[in-house]
């Protein structure tokens, strides 16, 4: 499996909205905690270490 960096999310505006809504009403530290939990849940779902490593690299490059 390779890291997919092409558009892959249906209804991108709807997804983005849901992402922001999940943080609605949270303090900065609560949001930070939510983000960390979300990252861990998603990383586990992906599982593949090469994909995860490539994702970390892609994220760091910005």
């Amino acid at each position: 499996m390779t890291l997919n960096l092409e558009p892959n999310i249906a209804d991108p505006d709807g997804f983005y909205d849901e992402l922001l809504q999940a943080h609605e009403g949270l303090s900065k530290s609560e949001s930070d905690a939510l983000n960390a939990r979300l990252i861990l849940v998603l990383c586990n779902h992906i599982g593949d270490r090469d994909v995860l490593r490539n994702a970390l690299t892609a994220a760091r490059k910005g």
Binding site: D32, A33, A36, R37, I39, L40, V41, N44
Partner: peptide
Amino acid sequence: KIFRNAVLYLARQHAFARPL
């Protein structure tokens, strides 16, 4: 520390976080 506590929080409910 945020990640550490996220792991501990998730580990209560979800098996996947326990090995971490």
